[in-house]
């Protein structure tokens, strides 16, 4: 591409006195002075969070109310800052979800360590851990900043996906073609 030399135009007398520019600027600011403010009054008004927002990692349940996590510990393994601690536990035989392999006995995410990278969500084979719209985590002690299992489910809620992987597996087992 050819280089085009653009001559800089010499400033006119009016421009060199700065006055027309200053008056133009004053007009603009005066216009804004009388316009309504656009600030969100934060604690009372909450911002609208996008669906794609990746905030605090949470645990979710499926539409039937079953906890999706099977405590495979992949997320614990992949987590770069080692913020996740999972204690795997058995599901009691009389539970309606007894056909599922396992469930976490304890599930802690240390939010002082979490870097919101989203690898746990990426790696989860059960789509059980999700970074959702929670953007503000506060606490007055270190212990408060560790989300335990109950808190994680409270934050996560239910996702409306219709996979029902383990229910399908159970149905298939009952019909005799497990794999």
């Amino acid at each position: 591409m050819a280089v085009i030399q653009v001559e800089r135009k010499p400033l006119s007398l009016a421009e060199r006195t700065y006055i027309p520019q200053i008056i133009g600027g004053l007009k603009t600011t005066l216009k804004h002075f009388f316009q309504p403010t656009v600030t969100l009054q934060y604690p009372e008004q909450r911002p609208e969070i996008s669906k794609n927002y990746r905030g605090v990692p949470t645990l979710v349940k499926d539409p039937n109310g079953r906890e999706k996590c099977v405590s495979c510990q992949l997320c614990e393994f992949v987590c770069p800052p080692k913020a996740i601690r999972i204690t795997p536990g058995e599901i009691p035989a009389d539970s309606p979800h007894a056909h599922v392999e396992k469930a976490p006995q304890a599930f802690d995410i240390d939010m002082l360590r979490c870097i919101y990278c989203g690898l746990c969500q990426e790696v989860c084979p059960e789509e059980a851990i999700w970074l959702q719209n929670q953007f503000s985590m506060t606490g007055t002690s270190r212990a408060e900043m560790v989300n335990n299992k109950a808190r994680l489910y409270e934050l996560g809620g239910t996702l409306p996906d219709q996979h029902f992987k383990w229910d399908k597996k159970k149905a298939a087992e009952e019909h005799g073609n497990a794999h």
Binding site: T29, H32, F33, T37, V38, T39, Q41
Partner: peptide, 10 residues
């Protein structure tokens, strides 16, 4: 206050 109002803040 004036700086805020000029910049669209309360």
């Amino acid at each position: 206050k004036i700086s805020a109002w000029i910049q669209g803040r309360p």
